[in-house]
Amino acid sequence: MPIPKKILLIEDDPDQVLMYEMELTKAGFNIFTARCGNEAFGIIKKEKPDLVFLDLLLGPEKGRDILAAIKTDAEMKKTKVVILSNFNQKDLPILVKKEGAFDFLNKSEYVPKELVAKAKEYLK
C-alpha cells in the first residue's frame, strides 16, 4: 500500500473545511487543515505536503500574501500550491501563476468529487 499523499487545505470557512476534508480523506489523501498563514507554514515545514489548496480570503490575511511567503521561503518554495477561490477576475489565474501558484481553481466550478479528481491529476 503506497504512502498516502499529503494535502494541506488552507481555508477559514468551517463549512468548506468540513466538506473538502471529508471528501479528500475519503479519496485516501492525508489531509491537514490550516485557518491562517502561520498555522499553514508550520504544517508545510513539518509535514512537507505534496499539495496545498490555498483560499484567497482568509480573515485578516490575503491568500496571495501566504503564497508569496511560501514561494520566497527556501524551505517551502518547492511546495505545489493550487489556489482555490471564488474570485473569478479574468486575470487572476495568470497573476497567481506568475506568483508561483501551480494552478488556479474556481471553487464554485468544482464539487468536492471533481476537486479530488483534480488533486489526483496534480499528484500524478
Binding site: D13, D15, Q16, M19, Y20, M22, E23, L57, S85, N86, F87, N88, Q89, N106, K107, S108, V111, P112, K113
Partner: peptide, 24 residues
Amino acid sequence: LDIASHQLRTPVTVIRGMTSMILE
C-alpha cells in the same frame, strides 16, 4: 462585482458541494 460575485459563489459552493456529496 468581484466581491459580490465572490460572496454569492461562496455559499453556493458549499451548498452545491455538500449536496453532491450527500447524493453520492
